[in-house]
Write a protein that binds this DNA or RNA. Structure first.
Length: 213
DNA sequence: CACCAGGCAAGTA
DNA sequence: TACTTGCATGGT
């Protein structure tokens, strides 16, 4: 399995190169994006981020003061805007209660503690927590998503019923811990999923992981 | 028109 | 505990 996972990464990276995740100007912006992109295309998230930027609201203190309904209307384009506004608000409460609204302070916390804390926040599940840990705080954790699961199961590397922690373990037990590589690997799997491994995708058999490529 | 996107929590039995 | 449903805009 170790060799297979390494080869998958080499193959994907040689085909597509670095993916430059996570596009953002600050740690806090990564966190907002991680919540906004839940089950949502990144292009829709970009519009929401832009509307926040236009109002200079990529700022924890300002957002904490902003009424939830105002926030909801600003992030409308990201979809699920009422839910996501509530989730951002619940993160902000946690952020100020525990870390004074300072990403620098939060980043000093150790990985297991921080992960457990994030999972306590209503609206932050495993993928969102791990995305924040890896891409915002540069902690060495492997992010797993529905594409990861689908790709591994289609290639016979995991059971269809495999759950998030099991899938994450497959990568973390077999790969050397490396923040840059973890970030690229996950991003490359997402690209592979989008381009070739969608739920119903006729291109599945010609994906770069197939023998002929 | 149908389908899906860089999930998560609440509801149901 | 194990399944199902709600959330919602915007691109293909």
């Amino acid at each position: 399995m170790k060799r297979k996972l390494e080869n998958i990464f080499k193959r994907l990276y040689s085909v597509w190169g670095p993916q430059y995740w996570w596009p953002a100007d600050s740690i806090f912006e990564v966190i907002l994006g991680a919540i906004l992109t839940q089950n949502t295309s990144w292009s829709n998230v970009e519009k929401a981020i832009s509307s926040l930027k236009a109002k200079k609201l990529i700022n924890a203190a300002k957002l904490y003061r902003l009424p939830q309904s105002k926030l909801a209307s600003l992030i409308r384009s990201a979809g699920y805007y009422n839910i996501k506004a509530a989730r951002i608000k619940s993160f902000l409460k946690f952020f100020f209660d525990h870390y004074a609204g300072k990403t620098k302070l939060m980043g000093k916390q150790d990985l297991p503690t921080l992960r457990a804390q994030l999972l306590e926040v209503k609206g932050i599940g495993p993928e969102t927590a791990d995305s924040i840990l890896l891409y915002a705080f540069k902690k060495p954790i492997f992010v797993v998503d529905t594409y990861t699961k689908r790709i591994l199961s289609r290639h016979g590397l995991a059971e269809v019923e495999v759950d998030y922690p099991q899938l994450q373990d497959i990568f973390m037990r077999n790969l050397k811990s490396n923040v840059e590589m973890f970030g690229e690997y996950h991003a490359l799997l997402v690209k592979l999923g989008k381009d070739y491994c969608r739920k119903r995708n006729p291109k599945c058999e010609i994906c770069p992981l197939s023998a002929f490529a």
